Amino acid sequence: MTRGRRRVRGAVVGLAAVLLAASAGCGPSTSGAGAQDAAHDAPAATGNAPGDTNAAADPSHPLAVVYRGPAACDGCPEAAQELLERNGFTVRFIGPDEPLRFGPDALTGAALYVQPGGTNGQEVTTAWNLLRRTPGFRPELIRDYVRGGGRYLGICMGGYLAGDPGYDLLPGDSGEYIKTAGATVTDDQDRLVDVTWRGQKQPMYFQDGPYFDVDGPGADVVARYTNDRVAAAVAAYGTGRVAVSGPHPEAPADWYSSYHLPDVSRTGLGLGDDLLHTLMGPS
């Protein structure tokens, strides 16, 4: 398997207060398809109307823009949406089939941009090329947004794409964990992976996610795999911040049941809350 082959899966009101202080941060196809269809049936939840780039008028519900398109798997954007909405965000999807499309003003008013998990068998270069062929998309749109004070959250494939090939937002790069020495997961099946998250051991949903070579000044290492590779981190980029995770803290309970895995979704979602709080905090 070449680098990047994966089926990546890839409400706390206090987070909105954290964001305000900062400004005065792959799921099973059976569940994902239904969630995606439901989202398309609810225009208010899927994206801004053309030209409406200031949907986050309510500061208590900051706007998160989540990519949904061919570089994301079925269910991954929706799982990210659930994590974000329970943390007080208003969510809009962006992509080739969404009301909100990439363009110079696409992220105006956004507090956060999210790149979710990718499709099984999809290499990082393939996902990146799909993004680059999206009408209106330019890597500089995301880079300039984060450099100017925005926030980027990359989960699994989104974590790979924070490196190179990708947006190149990290003070380092991403790599394929299952090929590292001492990895506890060595195939691309949906499994639990053990990490140490802020000093506490925790199994998390995992499907061929990345590790990150960002261990150095300016990087806050949030979690490590058991072989000491970085599993989740937050780092500065310009005046903005970038958060990346190899495992899936946004994974809902049905992802675990679909693959007959012990359900640790409640704890996992708590880790997702923690990552968001860290990302959206002061730079």
Rank of each mutant, 00 (worst) to 15 (best):
G117E: 01
S174T: 14
M157C: 06
G238W: 12
R133G: 10
K179C: 09
T239H: 14
G25F: 12
E85V: 15
Q200G: 03
C76W: 00
S265A: 15
A219P: 05
D215P: 03
Y225M: 11
Y167P: 10
L192A: 01
D190I: 00
K201N: 13
W197F: 15
P59K: 03
G149C: 13
V214M: 09
R101C: 04
D74S: 15
Q207V: 07
P203T: 09
T2V: 13
A16I: 12
R7Q: 06
A22Y: 05
A106C: 05
L153C: 02
A235D: 06
P210V: 03
G238C: 07
Y145K: 06
Y256D: 02
T267N: 11
L261K: 00
Y67S: 03
H40P: 01
V214T: 13
S245N: 05
G88R: 04
W128E: 04
R147L: 14
A38L: 14
G163P: 09
G117F: 01
S265V: 04
A35T: 06
A251W: 00
P59A: 09
Q115G: 01
G117A: 02
G240C: 13
Y113F: 15
A42Y: 09
P171A: 15
S245P: 08
C26M: 06
Q122F: 07
A56R: 03
R133M: 11
A56T: 01
S23E: 15
R143D: 11
G209I: 04
G109Q: 00
T125Y: 05
E85G: 02
G136P: 07
A42W: 11
